[in-house]
Nucleic acid binder design. Structure first.
Length: 427
RNA sequence: GGAGAGAUGGCCGAGUGGUCGAAGGCGCAGCACUGGAAAUGCUGUAACGGGGUAACUCGUUCGAGGGUUCGAAUCCCUCUCUCUCCGCCA
């Protein structure tokens, strides 16, 4: 959520930053108008409230010093109290309604891109930051796509998953299931080693949680909802991990908080019907190890860089070639001020595919979820900064392994770091 | 699912319908004592919103939402959550 005061005091700047995301679509004028009305009303109303409070106090004083409740003086006071009440009954709901309207509008606005985010309209204007592992890119021409080699090896199975659920679901069988489990364990172990504390959170989350991280209200069609309850299947562990501290005031000494979690993730993938229909790239249910940080605003940039490196370290350990790109303003996610995507090399398609997205949401989510901290000894509170990134998406990692480690004889080598987990050297 | 108890500041915890934004404690900050510290003593210490350069000031907030009243943490209704006991259950 954007800060109303910031919008009010720097309307031109805010509008300009929103325009960097997309030329049209975000107009702050209606918001400013509502804000102006609200403050006018609030001034009025609070003056009436003040008078009403005075009358209440006056009566209280008389009563305590033994005044007769039926006396003319007290009756007159009560009468004027009643008059104020009539007026307040008119103003109060109006003010409430205006504030609710403002809040509704505010929840629709995406975060402002950071000043350092490259300006651009489309994905094509994202900026490549670095590449790693060119030397590991296979020179082999005939690489089977991961779903073909997976089915050939009998470890990935789509048909029956469709029977059980629907399209975009998968069964992992035998070594496939073991490989998934090995990847989860390896990634968690690595991130714990890097200083993250593991969490196993609920994967059903309520509406308030999804609003806190920004999936709601705008992107309701992207998540699966449980009809009978106020619960949704979480689209990413970012949701439960950030919301762990929703509504809390932390001590500054508790920061930074670094959490990692393995969870299944559920996405409806509405509007991507033709895309990536085969394989492990785009499923309704997939596994992911997620990294989430809650940090002091002063350290959030450095924490962001470190988080990207924690994600990269997994690919380096697996010796999977990748590149890091920085998203331009037009491609930035709803809550992100700055975002790096890590893309892994998929030789069958001869292309890089996103395997991790590392965002700095600054105080955007913290304002929605009301996560603050108090500096010991100082007055007042500040919002934390929240950061999140995949460390990594498991299915896409498996796809990358099945392709990059494929041998001409139709077998797949197991990356060295995974061998202790899988207790085998090849598939 | 049945029966009961509860939800108050960063935390714990008191609170007869009337100067209650709320005693007391912990924690934290400042001062005193000390060579320095511990202990002790004194003082201060909620958040959010509006107005003001500021000192400050007004309002809102005691789980949430309604109601009664001149006035609600306190009374009434609805909801949510937590705990205890019973039942069911991986």
């Amino acid at each position: 959520m954007l800060e109303l005061k910031l919008i009010r005091e720097n309307p031109t700047k805010v509008q300009e930053l929103l325009n960097r995301r997309s030329a049209e679509g975000y107009d702050i004028q209606p918001l400013l108008e509502l804000d102006r009305k609200t403050r006018e009303l609030e001034t009025n109303r609070s003056q009436l409230s003040a008078r009403s409070n005075e009358i209440g106090k006056a009566i209280g004083q008389k009563m305590r010093s033994g005044g007769d409740p039926k006396s003319a003086e007290i009756t007159a006071l009560k009468e004027s109290g009643n008059q104020l009440k009539t007026q307040l009954a008119e103003l109060e709901p109006q003010e409430k309604d205006l504030k609710a309207q403002i809040n509704q509008l505010l929840l629709q606005f995406p975060n402002l891109p950071s000043e350092s985010t490259p300006v651009g309209k489309y994905e094509a204007e994202n900026v490549e930051i670095r590449r790693w592992g060119d030397e590991y890119i296979t020179q082999e021409e005939k690489i089977l796509p991961h779903w073909e080699i997976g089915e050939q090896l009998g470890i990935i199975e789509f048909k029956r998953a469709v029977k059980i659920a629907q399209s975009r679901f998968v069964n992992l069988i035998g070594a496939g299931a073991a490989l998934e489990r090995a990847l989860i364990n390896f990634m968690l172990d690595s991130q714990i080693e890097a200083g993250y504390t593991e969490v196993m959170p609920p994967v059903l989350v309520n509406t308030e949680s999804l609003t806190g991280t920004g999936q709601l209200p705008k992107f309701a069609e992207e998540s699966f909802k449980c009809g009978d309850d106020d619960l949704w299947l979480t689209p990413t562990a970012e949701v439960p991990l950030v919301n762990l501290y929703r509504g809390e005031i932390l001590e500054s000494t508790e920061l930074p908080i670094h959490h990692c979690a393995y969870t299944p993730c559920f996405r409806r993938e509405a509007g991507s019907y033709g895309k990536d229909t085969r394989g492990l790239i785009r499923l309704h249910q997939f596994s992911k190890v997620e990294l989430v940080k809650l940090v002091h605003p002063d350290t959030s940039e450095a924490e962001h860089q470190a988080l990207v490196q924690n994600a990269e370290a997994i690919l380096q350990a697996l010796k999977l070639p990748y590149r890091v790109i920085e998203l331009c303003t037009g491609d930035l996610g709803f809550g992100a001020a700055k975002c790096y995507d890590i893309e892994v090399w998929l030789p069958s398609a001869k292309t890089y595919r996103e395997i991790s997205s590392c965002s700095n949401c600054d105080a955007f989510q913290a304002r929605r979820a009301d996560i603050r901290f108090k500096e010991t000894g100082k007055k007042g509170t500040q919002y934390v900064h929240t950061l999140n990134g995949s460390g990594l998406a498991i299915g896409r990692t498996m796809a990358a392994i099945l392709e990059n480690y494929q041998l001409p004889n139709g077998t797949v080598k197991i990356p060295e770091v995974l061998q202790p987990y899988l207790k085998r050297e090849a598939l």
